[in-house]
Computed example of a mutant assay.
Amino acid sequence: MKQPALGEIVSKDILDLLPHRYPFLLVDRVLEFAPLDHIKAVKGVTLNEPFFQGHFPAYPVMPGVLILEALAQTGGILVVKSIPQQMQDKIFLFTGIEKVRFRQSVFPGDLLHLEVKYLKHKLNLWKIQGVAKVGGKKVAEGLLTAAVVDREDG
């Protein structure tokens, strides 16, 4: 079995970075990461995704809100990996979206490329720019905001 490249973030690492689990974990692998700068990740879209049962059975299309969620999760990895010492007992929560545009549909069999760029943060509020692509073509984009808050397990 091929070992991951130094610094590559694979699915088992993602499970340590994000609280999401099946069926809501929407990032499969991180291809590139630069702290407080950018991250590139991928999500392999398969017909086995549970949302395709209802969206839409005769014409399976990945819901746009889930593409945004995949970008938000990718942004969460960027933040957690950028400031790990400050993320102890914290969680990264998606708080808003702006200037969202959906450009093209995403179908089973597509490899969704998720590109997130760090824009700024102040205190616990973060702003990132997300772009999702398939085959080099932009399928969705938007500005996302999130907050780092105390994790309340209970």
Rank of each mutant, 00 (worst) to 15 (best):
M1Y: 15
Q3W: 09
Q3L: 14
A5P: 07
A5S: 14
L6R: 14
E8D: 12
V10N: 04
V10L: 04
S11N: 14
K12Y: 14
I14A: 03
I14M: 03
I14Y: 04
L15W: 05
L17E: 06
P19D: 13
P19C: 12
F24P: 03
L25D: 03
V27L: 02
D28V: 09
V30Q: 00
V30C: 03
L31K: 04
E32F: 02
F33H: 05
F33Y: 09
A34E: 13
D37P: 11
H38C: 10
H38M: 10
H38N: 12
A41P: 02
A41M: 00
A41E: 00
V42I: 15
K43W: 14
G44C: 15
G44T: 10
V45F: 08
T46M: 08
E49L: 06
F51R: 09
F51G: 11
F52I: 12
Q53P: 07
Q53S: 10
G54H: 12
F56Y: 13
P57E: 07
P57Q: 11
P57S: 10
A58F: 11
A58Y: 10
P60M: 06
M62N: 04
M62W: 06
M62I: 03
P63K: 00
P63V: 03
G64A: 06
V65K: 12
I67M: 05
I67K: 01
I67E: 00
A70L: 03
L71S: 09
A72L: 03
A72Q: 03
Q73K: 01
Q73H: 01
Q73N: 02
Q73C: 02
T74D: 01
G75Q: 05
I77C: 01
L78H: 02
V80G: 00
K81Q: 12
I83P: 02
I83W: 02
Q85C: 08
Q86M: 11
D89I: 07
D89K: 11
D89L: 07
I91P: 06
L93M: 11
G96V: 03
E98W: 05
K99P: 01
V100F: 00
V100M: 00
R101K: 14
F102C: 03
V106M: 07
F107E: 13
P108V: 09
G109C: 04
L112M: 08
L112S: 09
L114F: 01
V116P: 01
V116A: 01
V116G: 01
K117N: 13
L119I: 15
K120M: 06
K120S: 03
H121T: 05
K122P: 07
G130W: 11
G130T: 09
V131I: 14
A132T: 12
A132P: 13
K137V: 12
K138Q: 15
V139I: 08
V139G: 12
A140G: 07
G142A: 06
L143E: 15
L143M: 13
A146Y: 00
A146V: 03
A146E: 02
A147C: 04
A147D: 02
R151V: 12
R151T: 13
E152R: 15
E152N: 15
E152A: 15
G154A: 14
